[in-house]
Simulated assay, not measured.
Amino acid sequence: MKSITLIGYMCAGKTIIGKALAKSLGRTFYDLDWYIEERFRKKVPEIFAESGEEKFRDLENRMLHEVAEFENIVLSCGGGTPCFFDNMDYLNSLTETCYLKASPETLCSHIAMSRGERPLLKGKNPEELKTFVTEQLALRTPFYEKAHHVIDINVLDSFDKVNYIVDVIRNKMLP
C-alpha cells in the first residue's frame, strides 16, 4: 500500500491529523520537520536562522527524498515543502498526497493557538499575519492543489473533529 503524505499551510493540522491517521491505519507517522530536527540535532527555526531559507529548503528537499522512500507511512510535510524544487511532483509519484485546505481565517486561528516558533511569522500583529497568510496561501495554493486529494479542514474547530477528518481521508483514499 502506498504511503500517504499530508500537505498544506502551516498550522492546517497536518501533524495532529497525520498522527491520528497513522494510528488508525496501523502505520508509522513521520513529520518531516521533526525528522530534520532529529537528524541534525537542531530545531528548524535554528537551522532557518543560521542558514537562511535557501539552504534550509535544500536540506528539506534532501530529507524529503530520504523519508518519502519509506514504505507504508503517513508523512506530514512543512507548509512550504511542496512549493520548492520538484517536491510536489516527486511526492505525487511516490505517495498518495492529501492537501488539508483551510481558509486564511482558519489558519490564523490555528496559528494563534499553536505553541511552536514560526520564523516566517515572527513579529507580525494579527492584521499583518492575516495579510501575510492570505498572500502566501495564494502563492502556494497552485502547488497544494496538485495533490491527489483535497480535504476541507475548515470544520476542524475542536479536537473531536480530528477523527471526523481522519474518516474523510480514509474514505477518499482507501477502497
Rank of each mutant, 00 (worst) to 15 (best):
L120R: 04
L100I: 03
H110A: 09
L137T: 01
S114H: 02
A102K: 08
A102M: 11
K101R: 14
E105N: 12
E127P: 01
S109G: 11
P104G: 08
Y99N: 05
S114P: 03
E127R: 15
G116R: 14
L137W: 08
T97N: 09
Y90A: 00
K146S: 11
L137P: 08
N92E: 03
R140E: 08
D86M: 03
G116M: 08
N125Y: 07
L121K: 04
E105P: 05
E145T: 10
T141Y: 02
T134G: 07
P119R: 06
K101Y: 08
L137N: 05
T131K: 15
Y90G: 05
E128F: 09
L129W: 10
P126A: 12
R140C: 02
K130N: 06
L100G: 00
F143S: 13
K122M: 06
R115W: 00
T131Y: 05
G116C: 10
M113I: 05
G116H: 08
E127L: 13
S103V: 07
T134Q: 15
L121A: 15
T131V: 13
S109H: 12
C98I: 15
T106Y: 04
T141P: 00
S109M: 01
P126G: 10
K122P: 01
R118V: 00
D86T: 11
L137Q: 11
D89S: 11
T134M: 14
N92F: 11
Y99K: 06
P104A: 07
K122L: 07
L139A: 13
C98G: 00
T106I: 04
P142I: 05
S103M: 04
Q136Y: 05
A138I: 02
Q136T: 06
P142E: 03
T97S: 11
A112E: 15
Y144S: 01
T106S: 12
S93N: 12
L129M: 15
V133Q: 01
N87M: 09
I111H: 02
S103N: 09
M88D: 00
S109K: 15
Y90H: 12
A112R: 15
D89G: 13
T131H: 14
P142G: 08
C108D: 09
T95W: 01
N87R: 11
F132H: 13
A138M: 04
C108T: 06
K124F: 06
K146A: 12
E135D: 12
P119F: 09
K124N: 04
K130M: 11
T95S: 15
R118W: 01
L139E: 12
P126F: 09
L107H: 01
K146H: 03
L137D: 06
S93I: 01
L121N: 06
E135H: 05
E145C: 04
D89T: 10
N125K: 12
E135L: 06
V133S: 12
R115K: 14
D86A: 07
